[in-house]
Design a protein around this nucleic acid. Structure first.
Lengths: 241, 241
DNA sequence: TAAAACACGTGACTC
DNA sequence: TGAGTCACGTGTTTT
């Protein structure tokens, strides 16, 4: 039975690092890397070598637990930073905090993507697209207005925006937002246009077609129209008149 | 000695949930909430009450460890989601992953703020601001160009952009980006302008002042200048000439 | 009481 | 080897 109760230094040093589960426990286990404990292994000779083995095991275990403690502190510090970074994530448990972080990252990604779509850079390809809110690509601001999203990419030129302004006037379209990016002689323009939902508009698709044609003349004047911007305006078949 | 080797059900059930540290260990500890183990506590009477106490301790411990396991799995699932959400954060340890998440959130927040600034809505307050990259508010695109950020808010009017275009021409400034939002007769315009970093620019602050003055004339024509846009252009003190 | 959340020390594994 | 990370079961505290 005395073999089961190692007393003195060994027990005390071990107890400081063993879980408190062993409080009041008469029988203490020994580290697994020591195949057999010193007090049952051999003779009564408590040689210094065996003591050093034990001491090394103690220091190894201690440094191990300290390293693990540092690791935990590093992770928790980052979690604390995130807790401070995410709005209203204070007093959340770890799992909920991480869930909030995931939602936040997804939300920011979505916003960045939406903004990035309208901030698209000009390319070398001439392009004109017209989308109405019926297409599901644009949100309906209110029930009394038609929102049209226009995007075109073309060569930059001095009269471009004057011509564009005249063309939109001729269609009685109002520019709610304009996003213009120029790069190396090319220009990308994304417009959000609004039109009064008056009864004069018989068919939205005809307005759309007219707008597309006008934008083609403005963006690609040499290819689609030989006239000047003044001529272009006169050529527009305005569905409002 | 046989007291030290509890065999049968107790040992087996415990071994499945005890750390592998106890592999090959002849002596098994027992749960701390049992003040003294059943096999050393009293007489040889293995009463059903004592067994039920032990059984309850076992089930409690088991449910505890299972709950903790579920908690770990919840946290790790979120970490895995984040690992998949953050670009190139695969094969990172937990702490580094959380660090990357922090950087990503900060980066997205900054971008959203920058974009939000340029997407600001028009207000009722007339305003003109001019910032150069020396102020630290704009990034220097390359060493040979000067980037200027301009923001103004004013009443909308038909000739606004024609006047603006002339004014920027007079200062030999090129519009790299334009963000225009109109709302209820008011307009907010954020421009990113570039100027060749030629030796003709003696002082950047004088260009800045000129730009601010010109924008004042364009945005607030009645208050700051009685002339037309043509007059305005002639009034500009062009630092390039 | 009971369940949830957290910190802890440890064994296993990798580089 | 040694230093590092991870999952695990446990003790403690809080709700």
């Amino acid at each position: 039975m005395e073999k089961c109760i190692p007393s003195g230094r060994v027990q005390e040093t071990h107890r400081t690092q063993f879980p408190s589960m062993y409080k009041g426990c008469l029988i203490l286990p020994w580290p697994a890397h020591v195949t057999s404990p010193w007090f049952v292994r051999g003779t009564t000779s408590s040689s210094s070598m065996e003591e050093s083995v034990e001491a090394r095991a103690i220091t190894t275990s201690s440094s191990h637990s300290q390293a693990e403690k540092r690791r935990r502190e590093r992770i928790n510090a980052h979690l604390s930073t995130l807790r401070h970074l995410i709005p209203s994530a204070s007093k959340m448990d770890k799992a909920s905090l991480l869930g909030a972080v995931i939602d936040h990252v997804k939300d920011l990604k979505r916003k960045a993507f939406e903004l990035g779509q309208s901030l698209i850079m000009p390319t070398e390809v001439d392009e004109v697209t017209v989308e109405c809110n019926e297409n599901g690509n644009n949100k309906i601001k209110n029930k009394e207005s038609i929102i049209i999203r226009v995007s075109f990419c073309c060569n930059d030129r001095p009269e471009l925006f004057a011509d564009l302004s005249q063309a939109l006037d001729s269609l009685q379209l109002r520019t709610v937002r304009a996003d213009i990016v120029t790069l190396g002689g090319r220009v990308r323009n994304v417009l959000i246009l609004s039109a009064k939902d008056s009864e004069e508009i018989v068919c939205l698709s005809s307005l759309k077609d007219s707008l597309k044609a006008v934008l083609g003349w403005v963006a690609l004047p040499r290819m689609s129209s030989p006239g000047t911007s003044t001529n272009k305006k006169q050529c527009v078949s305005n569905p409002f008149t």
